[in-house]
Design a protein around this nucleic acid. Structure first.
Lengths: 342, 342
DNA sequence: GTTAGCACTCCGATCCAATGAGTGCTAATA
DNA sequence: TATTAGCACTCATTGGATCGGAGTGCTAAC
């Protein structure tokens, strides 16, 4: 049996209707809903076929049909090609240009959540491929140094370094010069052990401090390993009865709280390098167990070479895929634009 | 009618039982539960009295009794004086001493949530009364300065300052000295307009930069206005059926997500300067509308003069007040100790 | 190939009776 | 006078039983 054009139309009608109502949809509804001019009986036959093909399901014998994951998948794949919508409002909100990255990201997550009525997450860009731009040691107290580390993209890390010996201004200056001349412009990965011991040697009697500073650099970078993720709109899941029962809601909320679980999503998304950067996980396809009754749409954004992050939208399977994908597309562009403007 | 000792004992028994079961408790249960050796009939009479006095309620005619807010209040007030419990485990977990404040706070919230099975929040200490310790301007790119601002307690703020003119190293050094000599040791509030214009004058042709840096300082401080709040264990509310219905759960989750609402709690708590720093809000007493079916226990902790934050526990009215208050007490001490040790 | 029609299935709402936990009241008791 | 036993009464909850309706599958006719 083949999936002819009429079957696809019927499938689309079923899905669209289900997206609106959240209720299983029956043959009569489709018969009237579409402009196919077919009787409910014919639709029933077609539906039986569609079910056999695995695109729709019957929750119980005498109920209407709901889309299966496979059905959603087809729908999404077909839709992927089509339209984009306006998200002007969102654009405006973003343009209240926040100058701190984390504020911006929180803002994005929030706007997106309000806009779509789904739960959202956004991961801060990872800097792994980034280069060290600037290091500055300053004395804060007698035996306390402040190490400020700036990497490309103006991401700033601070670290307090405890030192045993007291340093005079001159030595501090020398150390600063030493560190900057040798480390600036280097990618994080390039700072290897050989490099470090060479530096230590040059620092002479202050080698221990160099060691500590380098360690601080390492720590600062490592802090990114458990990468920052901002979420918003978790409460939106209560808007969809199929997700709102205690069991599921609790699991979902937990996943959102323990951002740790969301990192899987980010990792997977960043690993993939497909053209649009938009991924749709339907039901079981998701890498996150507790979201197997949801659909997850993720998008990669890239601010500049090597600074990539992930935006994700988590909602019911009957998600408005068109809108979500459209919105994410726009957002990708806007984030990149916004970043360049600054 | 008076509230004699026996009535109080019965009330306590009712509350304790209700805390355990979450079900209305009947006279027979109390008759057996306590060591008062009274028949259920007598208890019934007493219960009728207690109800008349407003300490307990009957959800419906032939149900047992549940504590009213007034009842809880009495219970809490009585208990406040009593026992403290061990929270050794918690202590150990905390001693995996995190050196970044925000990590520590997140950790505390989490440990507390796991420990109590309630939702928790903790606000980062506010620094309003704190003094500027150190300012450092560095050039990151031709027309970009990095301002690092350290206030007491080693809280570090960064700000990128865009400048129109290019600065040579010497000028930068001068500016640094100027800023540090004049601003260091000053409380945030002491930096007023007069101060600023005096500084500008001394900076001569670079006054615009000084202005921008000062603005950056202002911004850095202001960022604290919407103070950081960390939450954990929001999913715990699903453990208590009386909070887990969609309506309430959604509102609560929202409150936890939109930390903005939690600030009310913090503000109120910090304003109050009572001895123990522990506050209990039962039901309607809470300042947060969406928590009117919960009880909220908050504690103030103080790391050093002027650095105070709030810990909060949000759970059902049938909260284990003893345990919660005890735990919070211990935590207060430990946070303070921990801070001093570092 | 399409459709009308019909028997059939099954969910969900509604009603009902039985159950039992718990009460209030009264009369007996210590 | 305080306590208790006993009893009638209330009412939420539970488990059937029933019924209507939405929807299906199948068959026969167009």
């Amino acid at each position: 049996m083949e999936l002819d054009e009429r079957k696809v139309k019927i499938l689309q009608a079923i899905i669209r209707n289900y997206l609106e109502t959240g209720e299983p949809v029956g043959s009569r509804t489709i018969s009237k809903y579409t402009d196919l001019n077919l009787s409910s009986a014919t639709i029933r036959n077609e539906m039986a076929d569609l079910e056999e093909l695995g695109y729709i399901l019957q929750p119980h014998t005498s109920a209407g049909r709901i889309p299966s994951d496979k059905g959603y998948r087809l729908y999404v794949d077909t839709m992927m090609e089509e339209r984009t919508r306006e998200v002007e409002e969102l654009k405006e909100m973003l343009l209240e240009k926040e100058d701190k990255m984390d504020h911006l990201l929180k803002q994005v997550a929030k706007v997106l959540a309000v806009n779509t009525n789904y739960a959202t997450m956004i991961s801060a860009p990872t800097y792994h491929r980034n280069k060290l731009k600037f290091i500055q040691l300053s004395r804060v107290e007698r035996n306390q140094l402040l190490a400020v580390i700036v990497v490309e993209g103006n991401v700033i890390k601070n670290n307090i370094v405890q030192v045993t010996e007291e340093l005079d201004d001159e030595t501090l200056l020398k150390l600063n010069i030493l560190l900057n001349t040798h480390l600036n412009g280097l990618a994080i990965e390039e700072i290897n052990l050989g490099m470090i011991s060479a530096l230590k040697q040059q620092a002479g009697c202050h080698s221990s401090i160099v060691a500590e500073v380098i360690e601080a650099v390492g720590e600062a970078i490592q802090a990114d390993e458990d990468l920052e993720i901002y979420t918003s709109g978790a409460n939106n899941i209560f808007k969809y009865p199929e997700l709102a029962d205690n069991q599921k809601a609790s699991e979902l909320i937990t996943a959102f709280e323990e951002k740790r679980m969301l990192t899987q999503l980010v990792q997977e998304n960043l690993a993939d390098e497909n053209s649009t950067g938009i991924q749709v996980y339907i039901g079981d396809e998701t890498p996150i167990q507790s979201m197997k009754d949801c659909s997850v749409v993720t998008a990669t954004y890239e601010l500049e070479e090597g600074m990539r992050g992930t935006i994700g939208i988590i909602g019911p399977k009957r998600m408005d895929y068109d809108k979500v994908i459209g919105t994410l597309r726009q957002l990708q562009n806007q984030l990149e634009e916004l970043y360049k403007k600054k």
